[in-house]
Amino acid sequence: MSVNENMNDNGIMNAAEETAAEMHLSGITGGVKKVDRSDPKIIVKGLKKSFGSLDVLKGIDAEIDAGEVVCVIGPSGSGKSTFLRCLNLLETPTGGDIYVDGDCITDKNADINKIRRHIGMVFQQFNLFPHMDVLTNISMAPITLKVLNKAQAEERARDLLRQVGLSDKETYKPADLSGGQQQRVAIARALAMHPDIMLFDEPTSALDPEMVGEVLGVMKQLAAEGMTMVVVTHEMGFAKDVADRVFFIDEGIILEQGTPDEVFNHPKHARTKTFLNKVLT
């Protein structure tokens, strides 16, 4: 399976010259590269990602503050998912740096498994574990990683199930739930590790229209509680209501960004206008 490649060791497979440069740097700081703690929650500098000869991300710069909700929009194939997946190193960047809480997570000394613990991710296809019931899906990670004991983890799982409105489903297998219910369980599963950042990759795109609302509702609640969120979405209504900022990604760069009002009502670029015309009509 090809995921292994990205994920072995520290998940870092940068080019040799970069590694050399970082070794030099970490020699000075005695470990992982740091920036000032008062800086934004997430800093992305010159992020590049290629698959073979295909350049998908061509230099992304972004800063996301704690508690901010950023919605990422853009045409299909423009690199939105790849950008999101770089933020928790499911994809290994081929260039640039990403800082989370001031720590350079693209540094080769970074402990990728530790970093991922406080970055939750929700997938378009839910990706619940089909062989576990709902409660085990949620409690498995904190138990396996010894963050909580079994009783604590199950108590937390029940709390989370209450929050997403699925208290009566804890013994169900994922296959016996509707899409909307599965996605709410997936959100609860990600929250079980107490993340302070949540990444969503088109969380409602695989859902029947009547189930979109229940998932967006949970996400709104999360945003209101101050979670830092990066949401790739085609739900323009959600982006307008909930986002603090909107990134329009086109052909591997953030072509335009701003408040929802700026991006949706006063887009500067022709391509943004074309895209919005297509999705809003």
Partner: peptide, 15 residues
């Protein structure tokens, strides 16, 4: 499914 490994790794579990 490839998404199973990704979901698990995204929670902080090792390979």
């Amino acid at each position: 499914n490839k998404g199973q490994m990704e979901a698990s790794r995204s929670l902080g579990l090792s390979y």
